[in-house]
Design a protein around this nucleic acid. Structure first.
Length: 553
RNA sequence: GCCCCCGUAGCUCAGUGGACAGAGCAACGGACUUCUAAUCCGCAGGUCGGAGGUUCGAAUCCUCCCGGGGGCGCCA
């Protein structure tokens, strides 16, 4: 990308200046280029002189001047200027910019793709909400972040597997089974109550009704007896199906649904991982429970693996799960995306990866802050245990899949967000996602009209693109590769909506100032070429967000 | 009590070592006989929670304090 090309020019200038004796010899830090906030400071700016003034024992402004003299000529660069207190500012050449419209149009939606991840097996695990209830709004945030990251990684050559970890074992599943059986019995007139710590939500009643309609009293046992485990399993299966369907509504699809229970088969990952922990001397028994001596690995405290009732903890199966990911499936990199309420879990999972022979450096845990759901300013609880849950499906039906995904993507994972249902509904017409989509629809409209009139960009002369609005738009197009790089480096897909917003804005300005289809046949061709480039980049940005790029609105 | 995240315009949020802090929404004033006005232009809006410190340079890094959220050995 152009930014990297310019960085190389700066490195070359430094080497040349040192060779010529204009600067002393020293090892310089990596060259970083940025976009100045003010246009008069150029398109790209290097602060290298300020950072090496100490090494050079010269004033920054003099370092900058020494560098400027040695910057090699480059087709993209019209001018390099020195600005106080010591910046080296690059101004892109208008003719080169115009030529980029042709380059981008030719690449189409492949513009921005790289092979950076070629041959790397990457796993992204996200949402993985308990199958004891449908996805709620908060799960939607994890879904949008994970899904979008997966799309970007794929676009850069990574072999990506998206996985949902199904917690189909353990205490909560058992409680869910008992809740379901209680609701089921109620449908047959029995006076039973939902167990303490059960799931009071309406969806369990709905599920019980479905099962009764389908299987009648097949799961009913004599009063007072324990429920048929098969009922609970069936219930979990149905909830998983529901989750799969609901996530599909916002375009989230997984390569694999990984069963927690499958880890626990005789001689399976759970046993093997446990063996590794024992071999490492990390397993101790105390207070009737079995502990993982995480404190030996720098953790502040030990953690229970097997409870005193003999059941493994969530942590224990999670160790087996990560053992399976790293050691048995051999991923080169694993990214877990969790809600911030799992924050305390991060360091001990990393410690466990190390303990079972994996490399904790290859594990990234991306935490997103929780979503506060509001209805008309009032907080609505999100927990499945609270009963009154607002499902992801309800939200999608109210505000639409595109707006939902865009909303969840638009803020950085580190910020808490308020999702006000009333606001989401009333402001749906003003949602930024429509601003971006409208830009795409406008482009599609003009191109369609041009096609009707037998016009195309064939044989276009890009150098006719000289209007300031045209060049500004092209500058924006060129920022897509940088944006994607930043998304991957920071694991921060929120850069995408931010970028798309700016790109759409540059397009709308262009559209207002520059008429595409005119009597000037040559200029029309050139502008159609620019439209094709803009359309491809916009469609790509929207696609990476998992948001549709409509032909018309 | 300890740990993590956050605090930026009226609201929702970008910006996390560079130049005079940005966008959207809301408010106000303009622009459609012309490829979609879900648009554009203009105007306005800020002690970057507070106080010290480091640095040529701090919204950004360090320390302390205030406020909000999350977490802290047998829930997941």
């Amino acid at each position: 990308m152009i930014r990297d090309d310019l960085a190389i020019l700066v490195e070359q200038a430094l080497a040349a200046a040192q060779a010529a004796g204009d600067l002393p010899e020293f090892a310089a830090p990596d060259v970083q280029l940025e976009h100045p906030q003010r246009p008069e400071h150029g398109d790209y700016s290097a602060n290298l002189p300020l950072r090496i003034q100490g090494l050079a024992r010269m004033k920054a402004i003099e370092v900058a001047e020494a560098l400027r003299k040695h910057v090699p000529a480059h087709a993209a660069v019209a001018e390099v200027r020195v600005a106080p207190p010591g910046f080296l500012n690059f101004y892109l050449d208008g003719e080169w910019l115009a030529s980029q419209a042709a380059t981008i149009a030719a690449e189409g939606t492949a513009f921005g793709s790289t092979e950076a991840g070629r041959g790397k097996k990457l796993q992204l695990e996200y949402v993985s909400a308990n199958p004891t209830g449908p996805c709620h709004v908060g799960n939607g945030r994890g879904a949008a972040i994970g899904s979008s990251l997966a799309l970007v990684f794929k676009a850069h050559g990574y072999d990506v597997e998206q996985e949902y970890y199904v917690n189909d074992a353990g205490t909560q599943v058992a409680i869910f089974g008992r809740t379901l059986y209680a609701r089921y019995q109620q449908l047959f007139g029995r006076d039973v109550t939902v167990p303490e710590n059960g799931y009071p939500g309406q969806y369990v009643i709905d599920l019980a009704e479905d099962l009764k309609a389908e299987f009648g009293d097949a799961y009913l046992r004599p009063e007072g007896e324990e429920p048929d485990p098969a009922l609970g399993e069936l219930g979990i299966q149905r909830m998983v199906e529901r989750i799969r369907t609901d996530l599909g509504l916002i375009g989230v699809h997984y390569d694999r649904w990984f069963s927690e229970r499958s880890l626990q088969v005789e001689g399976g990952p759970y046993d093997r991982a446990f063996g590794r922990l024992r071999d490492g001397g990390y397993v101790v028994e105390r207070e009737g429970a079995v502990w993982f001596a995480t404190s030996q690995l720098g953790e502040s405290k030990d953690n229970v693996l097997i409870r005193s009732d003999g059941q493994p903890t969530y942590f224990a199966t999670d160790i087996a799960y990560h053992y399976n990911k790293f050691i048995e499936r051999g991923f080169d990199r694993v990214i877990d995306i969790w809600g911030a309420d799992h924050q305390g879990h991060v360091s001990r999972v990393k410690a466990s990866v190390q303990a079972v022979g994996g490399d904790p450096e290859k594990l990234d845990v991306l935490l997103y802050q929780l979503v506060t759901l509001k209805r008309g300013g009032e907080i609505v609880p999100l927990s499945k245990r609270a009963g009154d849950i607002v499902t992801l499906r309800e939200v999608v039906e109210e505000v639409g899949a595109d707006a939902t995904r865009y909303f969840f993507l638009a803020t950085s994972a580190g910020s808490t967000v308020d999702f006000d249902l009333e606001l989401a509904k009333t402001q749906s017409d003003e949602n930024p996602v429509y601003y971006v989509q409208y830009a795409h629809a406008r482009i599609a409209g003009v191109i369609a009209r041009a096609t009707e009139q037998g016009l195309s960009s064939a044989g276009a002369n890009a150098s006719l693109l000289t209007h300031e609005a045209e060049l500004t738009l092209i500058r924006r197009l060129l920022e897509l590769p940088e944006t994607e790089e930043k998304v991957l480096a920071d694991l921060a897909p929120h850069h995408l909506p931010h970028y798309a917003q700016g790109l759409a804005s540059a397009f709308h300005v262009f559209y207002t100032q520059c008429r595409v289809i005119t009597d000037d046949a040559e200029l029309t061709k050139a502008r159609l070429l620019l439209l094709e480039a803009a359309r491809a980049v916009l469609a790509r940005a929207l696609g990476l967000m998992g948001v549709s790029a409509p032909e018309q609105m």
